[in-house]
């Protein structure tokens, strides 16, 4: 029982983290917290992949010339390595959208944005800052 729990501990934690991230995305109205919830979700998937690639008694996949050495699986490492950098780029894109939303509606809370959108009767949002001043 303990053995089995230790063997799947990583996966259990991954699921808890994943659901925590999903909970943040659904339950929190603040867009920044939604983004952070997404990145928690994302990191949990990273940990899942890396856990799959782990080999018992293995070491990092950097060859040392000894034919008896066991190595962990390098393939998940490659996939996740690139996913992390792509992840930060897409997170930045989401943040940029949040800044623009904040500029157009004066809020980053989902409820307020929906209310503002309804009161504007779905018209194209006016930019409150520099463009009006021109």
């Amino acid at each position: 029982m303990i053995e089995q729990l230790a063997g799947s501990w990583n996966y259990i934690i991954v699921i808890i983290l994943m659901m925590t991230g999903l909970f943040m995305v659904i339950a929190r109205a603040n867009l920044v917290k939604k983004m952070i919830g997404l990145s928690i979700f994302q990191t949990s998937v990273f940990i899942f992949y890396i856990s799959l690639g782990k080999m018992a008694g293995g070491t990092a996949p950097i060859l040392d010339g000894n034919p008896d050495t066991l190595y962990s699986n390098p393939l998940p490492h490659v996939l996740i390595l690139t996913a992390i950098v792509v992840g930060v780029a897409t997170t930045a894109l989401g943040l940029a959208l949040i800044l623009r939303i904040n500029e157009a509606f004066g809020s980053v809370e989902e409820d307020e944005i929906i209310a503002a959108k309804a009161s504007q009767s779905l018209a194209r949002p006016k930019r409150p800052t520099s463009e009006a001043a021109e």
């Binding site: 780029a89 930045a92 800044l99 520099s130």
Partner: peptide, 16 residues
């Protein structure tokens, strides 16, 4: 790209 991202965020209002 990382440098451009940082400058885009940090210089957002200044640019506008």
């Amino acid at each position: 790209v990382m440098l451009a991202l940082f400058h885009a965020f940090a210089g957002f209002v200044e640019d506008r």
